[in-house]
């Protein structure tokens, strides 16, 4: 065993539990935790997609239109639908955690979470109107 090599620096031989890197599949709540962490991958992909669109925009109409055609394709819309589900899951978990962090007297965690949802609805409606009508 490799651990015995450390016996000089370690005063006691500590028991080390072997932790396989599939530990998060053992329990439902661990898997949900991992899905929450995975949501950040989709957040990053969306940010990179936006950057790709802007790069194409800066390269002229022809390149921009060909990139837009890719973003309008069926599989790309399907991918965005999956990304949207993960980003909604990020939003739900984020507001739940906000409640736990900022939910101190006189506000309860539940009230903070509800306030977050109210602001979210307002922000979403305003942004929707600005982007589509502005």
């Amino acid at each position: 065993m490799k651990h015995t090599d450390n016996s000089i620096t370690e005063p006691t031989k500590t028991y080390r539990r072997i932790m396989p890197n599939t530990w998060w599949l053992k329990k439902g709540s661990y898997t949900l935790f991992m899905l929450r962490e995975l949501s950040s991958v989709f957040v990053a992909i969306y940010a990179i997609f936006l950057l790709i669109r802007l790069c194409a925009l800066s390269q002229g109409a022809e390149i921009y239109n060909s990139k837009t055609a890719i973003f309008n394709s069926g599989w790309m819309i399907a991918l965005h639908a999956v990304m949207w589900v993960f980003i909604m899951y990020h939003m739900i978990t984020w507001f739940k955690i906000s409640g736990r962090i900022f939910g101190k007297k006189p506000l309860s965690p539940g009230l903070v979470t509800i306030a977050n949802y109210i602001v979210w609805v307002v922000v979403s409606v305003v942004l929707f109107l600005i982007i589509t009508k502005g």
């Binding site: 980003i87 602001v119 922000v123």
Partner: peptide, 8 residues
């Protein structure tokens, strides 16, 4: 990401 990205 929580407030803006879902609608965007």
């Amino acid at each position: 990401a929580a407030f803006i990205l879902p609608v965007h």
